[in-house]
Design a protein around this nucleic acid. Structure first.
Lengths: 204, 204, 204, 204
DNA sequence: TATGAATGAGCCTTCATTCAT
DNA sequence: CATGAATGAAGGCTCATTCAT
């Protein structure tokens, strides 16, 4: 029961939070490599250097760990996306800004993204994943809104806007599977590439 | 190991093969819904109506079952793609034909595709998945070849062709996650949509 | 999942049921000796001769096993008690008959009784123990009814009938803790002893 | 092992002893509610308000804690019983006095009694429980002596004295399971009730 | 005194697979 | 072909306890 109740004294609390994030990051890496189900808790303990029980000071269950990974992925991304959407700017410019932020986040959370994509079935089926599902929905809604604004102000033309959105989602969500930190293309370049594809496709 | 020696008498053999395909299809459905690892063999026996041991007359192992699913997905697709590539036709037309075939296959093998995408880590890591990896590589090579031919004959222009290919793969591979058999868009329309996106992006 | 679904073919089914009862009896013995919580499933597997997983063909969980033990204790006892209560007979005679049946049952289910008494807290607290609680209540009600009938027909006199019942329950429920199959006193003698104590105490 | 060395300075020592008794009382309550094995040390820390390690300043181990509970139950009871037995008084009167003391003790140590009854198997099996077993034995011997004296002086008649004792033990030991501090019956009334039952049963 | 991080053995249970029938 | 009993390793997780602070 002591598990998962972070200490109250500030110094300890900080150390606790830091280690917790380390654990989550390590888990994200292993899950991305081997799959969530295929990764055993003992592989995770080995990777973290903690003993079996010690791990459970920082997480409540393997399940919750997966949720935490998704939260760490979606929370800051959604927050940033909302900031961008709140600014007054032409839709095309907003779209580009969103893609830049998105791809930068993917680059820094590649493992998280891979896990998130992989565990689609869990996320979709279990009830206590509602919040995560909501976050994803909200992000996709923000994207759709930008496209809709583009349509309204006459700078974008879509035969089928929701299909265009799915196209975009497909391209971006696939990125973590080939993205290489030391690769030829930087996240910004990739974002620009996607943006151009969409804007060209939506040109009158 | 008595398992997996299909009967030799033609009548029995046919029934055997039919049932085997049923088993694989059922497995594909369950794996797509719940994930490969998260699906237990006893869920599979329940879904097939067979008893624990009976299943093993039709498959060698859970592992092999996964490979069979991928084979059923990739073999006919690659075969059809090779036919299309073998025909003499302008690259843009070939690309469209490939996409039509591809999307049609996805529509009829949605579960297989979902499983294939999900189990990326298994496919990539284990040695006895080499054949499957090869098939996928070969298919992607065919696509790249078409784009390359388009570049050579001056009908397509890419700033970065391999990035264009990744863009295409992303869009298409994401499709099974939202494709609805009774949805607004037919596989052909989707294929055309993707084709247009790529061709526009590659327009001079 | 295969666990706990008894076979349908009669011959197998019978063997299955027999073994299941053996498992429950063995469990009752171990639980009585060491306590439910203090008995590990591996001690149980060792005692049954089955391997870890094999046990679970016959039980659904350690928890359910405990419930089954109580069911095997209470179901036949309650049934027999109802038969006795249904007969037309003077209350004193019915009381004696009930005690005979009860003590005989205790003698043949000593382990079950010890477990039942020991695990009072589980039985009282958990919701899925409602049926068991109901059975016990029903049995105690039958006893109380006999005493009430004795009061009404003037053959028994209690200052406080419910206290008298508790007295009786105390005496009987304590029995398994000292009862010795090869002891001086037979279950019938013990039953008569308790009966006499109550009848004397209720004499005018 | 730094634990369990109570302070030597009187003021601190007193506070220490007070807290220790609180811990034991809390443990008794939890153990009575949930069972000894089923109560985790972290439930106990939560209930005491101490942190994991802090508890161990007051106890040596969970095991010893259980022994302490039994000691707190048996020591004063046995002492009081010996006083009563030492007085010169007619057996019937002594029996009543013993029952009064006993039931009063049960009323004020209900949790202790429940735990003591529940953990019969531990008490009986483990070697370092000898002292506790001895205490119980001694107490029961005192009771038996009173009955024996009653037999000798002709005021009590038992067909089987040891059976009568078991009857008494059953009644009394069952009491904590239904005793209600705010119930209809006071400990004295209950004690008188039991006493009457025994005396009537032993009437010539 | 008190905290809480950490241990590591052990818990109950599941699972893919085999094999006698 | 098919059944279902059986295996035993491995799974995620809990727990009493220790110890540096």
């Amino acid at each position: 029961m002591a598990a998962i109740s972070p200490p109250t004294r500030p110094v300890l609390r900080e150390r606790y939070e830091r280690r917790r994030r380390e654990v989550i990051a390590t888990a994200a890496r292993l899950f991305a490599e081997r799959g969530y189900q295929a990764t055993s808790m003992s592989e995770l303990t080995e990777a973290t250097g903690l003993a079996a029980g010690g791990l459970y000071h920082y997480i409540e269950s393997k399940d919750q760990l997966l949720i935490s990974i998704c939260d760490e992925l979606l929370d800051p991304l959604l927050e940033r996306a909302r900031e961008i959407a709140a600014e007054e700017a032409p839709p095309a410019q907003q779209l580009r800004a969103l893609l830049h932020a998105w791809l930068a986040h993917i680059a820094s959370h590649r493992d998280h993204m891979l896990v998130f994509a992989q565990e689609r079935h869990v996320i979709e089926r279990e009830p206590h994943w509602r919040r995560v599902r909501g976050q994803r929905k909200a992000f996709e809604k923000l994207l759709d809104d930008v496209l809709a604004r583009g349509e309204r102000d006459g700078t974008m033309h879509f035969e089928d806007r929701s299909f265009a959105l799915l196209t975009l989602l497909g391209m971006v969500n696939y990125t973590p599977q080939w993205l290489n930190p030391r690769g030829r293309l930087s996240p910004e370049q990739i974002a620009d590439g996607y943006c151009d594809v969409i804007l060209r496709a939506s040109a009158a």
